[in-house]
């Protein structure tokens, strides 16, 4: 049965399975309405997230505009290689997430489990690399509020501190979203192993997929802003 391909939106008419399979909740009339509502809810939530990160991007833009020289001086400490690898890792995880969603839509249980695990592995690699980067900043006394000392260009100490705060704030908030995403993926994985998801019910996979892509896109903006703009090679 699992091999039967049921194209999305082409389920046989009049053969809607019972609620145990479709997970149709009482206040919805049809599974289609339920899926539509969930997806719109997720998109709306992501708009909220855009505005949430938007506040930090605004702060970044303002300070970059006010203190360009201090900002340029900090780029020495940004590891473009680690950032670049992380970008690639996240793009891969987006691909495997998209494959997972497609597998769920086609009722393919084993590929679904496989792609979910792959996505989680990529997500974890990202966080490990991020940890390595943060750790080196800690060692170099670049954490505002804890041990900030700026020897690169002492005249910029104050302004560089604001940049490093923004760096930690933005990448930290992004990493927090990654951790939440990994939690959600764990939930999906358990449900997938229990064979809950079928072509009749894949709403959570698609919703969490959207969330995951969103978190990736945030990084796609963070990487050039924090690592590439004003980049010059370390001496």
């Amino acid at each position: 049965m699992a091999e039967t391909i049921v194209p999305v939106g082409h389920e046989p008419v009049g053969h809607e399975p019972p609620p145990e399979v479709t997970h149709l909740r009482h206040h919805f009339a049809t599974t289609e309405q339920q899926l539509d509502a969930s997806m719109l809810g997720m998109w709306t939530f992501l708009i909220t997230e855009v505005l949430f990160f938007g506040g930090m991007f605004t702060a970044y833009a303002v300070y970059r505009f006010m203190y360009p020289a201090a900002f340029a001086s900090t780029s020495v400490y940004m590891d473009v290689w680690l950032g670049g690898i992380n970008t690639a890792v996240l793009i891969c995880s987006s691909l495997t997430m998209a494959m997972a969603v497609r597998s769920a839509q086609l009722s393919r249980e084993r590929p679904l489990v496989l792609f979910l695990i792959l996505t989680m592995i990529f997500g974890t690699i990202f966080l490990v690399i991020k940890y390595i980067e943060w750790h080196s900043k800690w060692v170099e006394h670049l954490v505002p509020g804890f041990n900030f000392q700026y020897n690169e260009a002492p005249q910029y100490t104050h302004h560089a501190q604001i940049l490093f705060f923004l760096y930690f704030c933005m990448t930290g908030m992004h990493a927090l979203h990654m951790i939440v995403g990994l939690g959600l993926l764990t939930y999906l994985l358990i449900q997938a192993i229990r064979k809950v998801f079928t072509a009749y019910y894949f709403t959570p996979v698609e919703m969490i997929g959207l969330y995951w892509h969103f978190v990736d896109i945030v990084w796609i903006f963070l990487f050039p802003l924090l690592y590439l703009i004003g980049y010059h090679h370390p001496k």
Partner: peptide, 15 residues
């Protein structure tokens, strides 16, 4: 307020 990171502190260039 907790860590005095400076983002709103005019003493160090915060706005």
């Amino acid at each position: 307020r907790i860590a005095h990171v400076g983002i709103f502190d005019p003493n160090i260039g915060g706005d």
